[in-house]
Nucleic acid binder design. Structure first.
Lengths: 226, 226
DNA sequence: ACGGCGCCGATTGTATACACTAGCGCGCTA
DNA sequence: TAGCGCGCTAGTGTATACAATCGGCGCCGT
């Protein structure tokens, strides 16, 4: 993260994530220059990049605004994640190497330790989320498709930006943990259909735990229970 | 396409497509400034955008180069396309409206006319490809997932950039045409499993028609039969 | 002769000045 | 008073000057 453009990107991204710039906020280049401490050129580059990743919206001559997420968007997002992560898990079951299985097993063991420990709940959840990412990325990689890795990376980033990760309860984490354990068994058994199925469940459960999925006509802005 | 950045983007993209800039060619900003007739700022913006869409690779302080595609890349690309287009077709079967069915039917009828006509073969194929895109996009849209539309758009653009469309033979087109007709029947019957299956076949057949799919250890650079 | 150090040119990264566009408010007119 | 148009201004788009960086080449020391 050496150069100014990257710094600006990270800075703005973090600010969106912690709601310094809330959804729909207008991002004026001059403000961001002050905020990031770099000139307009790298700020603009950062904005373009954020737009390419769907975190902000840019309209010609009208600047950028933080993208907001409707409940329908979340449905869409998680439905695609379920499809792709399921696919990745299925492929992984056919190809994963012993060493990667070991890494996943070890991450899951770490989760056990974290959950059994007596750290503050928030810390437990944060650490669990980190390990969660480790497990998922290992599965993506094991799928043997670089493109799948990058697409899933994007989808997960988008889920993050929609502030879905802040709603994890300990109960949710426990369920998630069980899914991981079952996923590991499926991978060890090289049972691709099983791996795919449990992964799909895992993702769909995550969507369900968030919020009222869009009903007949889901509201425009998914509320967030923080 | 009014502003300089867009112009630069389109110009460079077209030049990559027609091999003015062949795969692995180094794209120096100064050259592109001359080539596009705009200053470095919009050229750089165009390059960043092309990189985000995976058409070029940018390395820090080392400029950009046209991305080249291995046979494995193509496998990956088409495998993902098959999954996602199949998914889209399945969803479309459940949701598509009469008017969209009509549009697809009409595009297919146009294909009939084109193939029956006596235009030069190259023109026939070009027109077929245009209508092909119309049909596919209609299906994507009917899937009701905006995200799916944009992901598939990207994947197809990448396939284009890998110069896969230049290898269409009339025989291939005829097979493709039959797939479309069957897809339409599946959609009309609202049979999602059928629609998904035929669409997957359609895409996998396209991959197969291209080139030796990567064998046990596919060569690093898919040759192209031009 | 060979290895390392440092300079130099080429190229990208950053800052800033200037140009253009769009949106808004004021005033003029009917 | 309502409607239209003009000009102002905030903000983005573009060009260009300047700074930092990388890689290669040659010189020097051993």
């Amino acid at each position: 993260m050496a150069n100014a453009a990257d710094r600006a990107y990270q800075t703005i991204r973090a600010a969106i994530l912690d709601r310094t710039f809330p959804p729909d906020a207008r991002l004026k280049e001059a403000e961001l220059v002050a905020f990031c401490g770099v000139s307009r050129t790298p700020v603009r580059e950062a904005l373009r990049r954020l737009a390419a990743e769907d975190f902000v919206r840019i309209q010609r001559n009208q600047g950028a605004e933080v993208k907001s997420w409707s409940s329908d968007d979340l449905d869409d997002l998680f439905s695609l994640r379920a499809l792709l992560e399921g696919h990745a898990a299925g492929r992984a079951a056919q190809r994963i190497r012993q060493s990667d299985l070991a890494r996943i097993a070890s991450a899951i063991a770490d989760m056990d330790a974290v959950l059994a420990g007596r750290a503050p709940q928030a810390d437990k959840i944060a650490e669990f989320l980190r390990l969660n990412r480790v497990v998922h990325e290992a599965v993506w990689r094991a799928s043997g498709s670089e493109r799948l890795v990058s697409m899933l990376g994007r989808l997960v980033e988008q889920a993050l930006m929609a502030h879905t990760a802040q709603q994890f309860s300990l109960a949710r984490v426990a369920q998630s943990h069980h899914h991981h354990q079952e996923l590991l068994r499926a991978l060890e058994a090289r049972d691709d259909a099983w791996a795919e199925a449990i992964m799909r469940s895992h993702i769909r459960a995550a969507r369900q735990a968030l919020e009222p999925p869009a009903g007949p006509h889901g509201g425009p802005h998914g509320g967030r229970a923080e």
